[in-house]
Amino acid sequence: MPTLAVANLRKVDLGPAILDYLQKIDATLAPYDGRFLVHGQPVTVLEEGWVGDFVVIIFPDRARAEAWYRSPAYQAILPLRTGNSDSTAFLVDTVPETYRATDFLKTLGIG
């Protein structure tokens, strides 16, 4: 299943370091077949609590997502983002097209 790298970036300093990060990140994604799905587009906040920009990168699987994040190329530019923003990033696997909310109940032994 595809894996998403998701980030919520708050308080971003759009100075030279972030510009450098943006100029270099695409090259770090290519060897792992990663690509942007969402990159800072405006969000419509439906419930309270959201602040900042939203980024989603898709990879064919978790192994490639983790390999990208740990790669020397990405680790070299990571401080450009973390040092110039308040951000949270994580990996999450997608679900099959046939997935239904009740499938989660089965993982809990209910239903």
Rank of each mutant, 00 (worst) to 15 (best):
P2M: 11
P2Y: 02
P2S: 06
T3I: 10
A5Q: 15
A5I: 13
V6P: 06
V6Y: 13
V6S: 03
A7L: 15
A7R: 06
R10N: 12
R10A: 07
K11W: 14
G15C: 03
A17M: 04
I18D: 00
L19W: 06
Y21G: 00
Q23H: 06
Q23M: 08
K24C: 13
K24L: 08
I25E: 12
I25S: 11
I25P: 09
T28L: 12
P31Q: 08
Y32I: 02
D33F: 06
G34R: 13
G34N: 07
F36N: 12
L37K: 05
L37V: 03
L37R: 00
G40F: 08
G40D: 01
Q41M: 04
Q41W: 00
Q41V: 00
E47A: 07
W50H: 06
V51T: 11
G52S: 01
D53W: 10
F54N: 02
F54M: 04
I58P: 08
P60F: 12
D61G: 04
R62H: 00
A63H: 10
R64D: 02
E66A: 08
E66S: 07
E66Q: 12
A67H: 06
W68D: 00
W68S: 04
S71W: 08
S71A: 14
P72M: 02
Y74M: 05
Q75D: 04
A76V: 14
A76Y: 07
I77V: 06
I77E: 10
I77R: 14
L78Q: 14
P79M: 13
P79Q: 14
P79R: 10
L80M: 04
R81A: 14
R81C: 10
R81N: 10
R81P: 08
S85H: 01
S87N: 00
T88C: 13
L91G: 03
V92N: 05
P96C: 06
E97W: 12
E97A: 12
E97N: 10
T98Y: 10
T98I: 04
Y99M: 10
T102H: 15
D103A: 02
L105H: 11
L105F: 03
T107H: 05
T107V: 12
G109K: 00
I110Q: 01
G111P: 11
G111Y: 00
